[in-house]
Design a protein around this nucleic acid. Structure first.
Lengths: 193, 193
DNA sequence: ATAAGAAAAGACTGGTCTGTCTAGTTATCC
DNA sequence: GGATAACTAGACAGACCAGTCTTTTCTTAT
């Protein structure tokens, strides 16, 4: 865990480049020069640029979801846990290398042929949606499946636009607006105290 | 107006290609072959690919805003006008060549250097936000500036995530969810009858 | 010490990219 | 009819692309 393997070095360098400059604009040569490795070494660890992209997406998503779970678990039950995702986003926005959502950024670059990468992004977003559903279930009592989906879907939509728009405008108003709107979703629900 | 000039042919071809396959994945040669023109002709109308991109964004945005204004004006005052943007989005989604938001799609491809295109996207999104503010002002009475901004900002965020997520999932649930959430924004306001 | 494996360095293939330039063709207007 | 402008076709430059391969160097385990 956390070892500095060549594998990790490649993913880290590629991740920074893809996230900052875009997938199509980043060349293999940039990745190897930033990793300080030879080209043949890279291709002995990954069979294609597409594979590196999927590893990049997975790494970002896994670490995001881990952070989110930690943010949720560190908060009091109820409203605070339901809004934890916006606290995380606010802190992500404050990082100097914030460039919005890695998944949606990559989605914009895909041509309809690149089904594999699309599948990865869809899977990750569904995973987030599912987790938000759990958080809603844990923090709101006596709630139907339809209501759960509406609330978690709403938080999801607000989060995804907040991350994209704060990046677009280079301003955090979308995060605060989204966070202030989210409670309307469960205003008439039995939020756990 | 609406003449079939070479200028328009270039924008139309480029627009379809950029929107479907992405900006970086679309080559000049593809654009000229789809336009049925020679390369020198293209470069006598546009000085660079970046310029074509900006014309593409402008054309999509202008036509979107025109449609939106028409959708709003054709609806009864009040709730229907406030939600008109989601009706438009639903109809856009049903078009066979729907690929989400042209602006956000392009945003994902930009490296931090491409300030000009970023500026165009920011300007367009601000224009949409401003127009939504007008619609809110026209349809809700006795409302403060802060409340107007919260409601129009909320509709804006819901619209932008709905367009992106419906494209990502190839499903219209985000549009209906966003539309069903939006009224919560003005539940306690004086909506014009 | 030696054998085996991993990695470095970078040449190379075959292709793509944007943008320029030259030539020849067509259309238009006086 | 002759001039002017707009267009076509495609060669070309110079750079970059992903991915393969060879050769040399280094590390490590027995």
């Amino acid at each position: 865990m956390g070892e500095i393997t060549i594998h990790n070095k490649i993913i880290t360098s590629a991740s920074n480049l893809f996230y900052a400059n875009g997938y199509n604009s980043t060349g293999i040569n940039e990745i190897i020069s930033k990793s300080g490795i030879a080209k043949a070494t890279l291709y002995s660890h990954f069979k294609s640029k597409e594979d590196i992209c999927m590893a990049y997406l997975k790494q970002r998503h896994d670490s995001f979801l881990e952070s989110l779970k930690s943010y949720v678990s560190k908060r009091k039950k109820g409203r605070n846990q339901l809004l934890a995702i916006f606290d995380l986003l606010r802190d992500m926005y404050r990082e100097e290398d914030f460039h919005g959502c890695w998944g949606l950024k990559t989605l914009g670059e895909l041509s309809p042929k690149q089904k594999k990468i699309l599948g990865v992004i869809q899977k990750q977003k569904k995973e987030l949606l599912l987790y938000l559903g759990e958080v809603v279930g844990d923090n709101i009592t006596n709630i139907s499946k339809a209501e759960t989906e509406k609330i978690s879907g709403g938080i999801y939509l607000l989060y995804d636009s907040a991350i994209t728009e704060s990046h677009l405008f280079k301003n955090d108003w979308p995060i605060y607006t989204a966070r202030s709107i989210a409670p309307l979703l469960f205003a008439n629900s039995e939020v756990v105290q």
